[in-house]
Design a protein around this nucleic acid. Sequence first.
DNA 1: TAAACTTACGTTGTGCGTAAAAATC
DNA 2: GATTTTTACGCACAACGTAAGTTTA
Lengths: 302, 302
Amino acid sequence: MNLYQFELFCQIAKVRSFTKAAKLMHLTQPAISAQVQAMENFYGTKLFERSATGVKLTPAGELVYKYAQHFLAEHEKLEREIDNLLGTNAQTIVIGASTTIGNFALPCNVWSFKEKFPEANIRIEVDNSQKVIALVLDGKVDFGLAEGPEFTNPDLEIKKVGESQVVVITSPELPQAQQNSITIEELKKLPLILREPGSSVREVFFEAIKKTGIPASELNIVLELGSFQGVLEAVKKGHGVSISCLEAVKKEYHRKELHYLTLKDMELTMPFLLVYRKDRTFSPLAKRFLRFIIGPAALEFC
Amino acid sequence: MNLYQFELFCQIAKVRSFTKAAKLMHLTQPAISAQVQAMENFYGTKLFERSATGVKLTPAGELVYKYAQHFLAEHEKLEREIDNLLGTNAQTIVIGASTTIGNFALPCNVWSFKEKFPEANIRIEVDNSQKVIALVLDGKVDFGLAEGPEFTNPDLEIKKVGESQVVVITSPELPQAQQNSITIEELKKLPLILREPGSSVREVFFEAIKKTGIPASELNIVLELGSFQGVLEAVKKGHGVSISCLEAVKKEYHRKELHYLTLKDMELTMPFLLVYRKDRTFSPLAKRFLRFIIGPAALEFC
DNA sequence: TAAACTTACGTTGTGCGTAAAAATC
DNA sequence: GATTTTTACGCACAACGTAAGTTTA
């Protein structure tokens, strides 16, 4: 039995569903099934009653739940005590983060990390993905959180820690805002506003375009801006359409300041990558943050 | 982090040595090193100070030790509560055990199991290894604990859970009792008393003899007895020498009622095998006992 | 029939043992 | 130099994802 299993178990018990727990823990549903089966086999009894509407704890499951919560809480206490002993919680972590992550995903993660480690000192350097990778390679930051596309580098360890859907954003005033999706042929005709080269959304988008066989030169790029906010404002005003992570524009969408369209016949998602030098030795606090980012509370928008 | 690692950790902390802990946990020493390194990496700090005389807990290690003990104790409590809930601790387990195991190794294991599960009802059927296998195949017992030699059977799951050295036993009065080892050539000349066919010590011994190229017919077998106690008495009285598990005659050796010799140029050990039908479904209590037998407290003489 | 869980299977990573090396008394 | 821990490497098993199957409201 391991603490990870207890963590899964608590999550399942809380949301009363394997499927939902799988999503929250960034696993597939069968993986959850397998872990629960392993636990049930270990304790020699069913822990959940399954049904088509979800799952429910058995009496034995209730017991395991009680103890599992206790174990997780106590183990956090142990980690905190070790930190106090070593004084590691007063250390500094320097993170390089790309625009979307730095603005929309990382802050809330940092926030909940700070709740656990109030004395931790975290500095985030926000730049586009290419620059973040450079910061990591130069050792200027402990590690980087960049958006895809995925790549390899012999000096770097690269792990996917999340992803986001990529969509076309338009002003709600444009005729296209009546639709929910758009073909590339239609998009080609629209004025396109993009971030600067080095921006990941741009890279991912261009890569996907290339796969369709359409030359990038056929796109009607009317403006390139070195700032996400700038692009957003330009699109809001109807100067053109752009490409963005869905989660980065959700707020504007709900405020009806923007509309978004999915690209037809294209699976356009953007992976979030954790990147660090293979030869780097991390401070205890940095290791904690890594576990925190990689672990069950993986990078997510909030 | 998992409970098994905490168990290893506590054992190491208790005996203050990786090497000793490895032996107690039936692992190799590098396996212990690796687990400790994994834990140290996880917590981001050294947990043991290493030296050529053993290891010592660091302050952080002391903390982990405190919590580890707590976790293990609490988890046992959880298991007991589940048992009480299901009433499984009042069930019966039927074990088939071969002579040596049934007489010398199993009783103490059963005893410490009973301490954890006082209401458990355990029945042990003692016979020679061949008969034990038959009992398992017939479903007459939940599982069997037999001595080697190792074998395979498509219907059976077979796991090694311990082993013992096999030695030649003699009366302390015989001239051979001055030596600590004996060659096969010397042994051939001595009157040999053996257990009946089907006894494992006999099988292991014959297999080893066969490997030397010496025909078994050259052995001077003067008596075959269907009882371990009978063989022991005959040897004590100097009627001949015999073959036995070292641990089974330790008591007599210390009382100077018997002497034992290792066989020269032969690595003669006898594995202890846990055997059960692959298609068998176990009661929760039986699963507990299996975990108990296979786990860290593996089958050992006492 | 749609949503939920299970089974089957191929791939990847972790844990262990063996063997050889390094460190310490 | 003997004892203890570490490193290197090959193998086996466990965990996960994909895809297909089964159950139930």
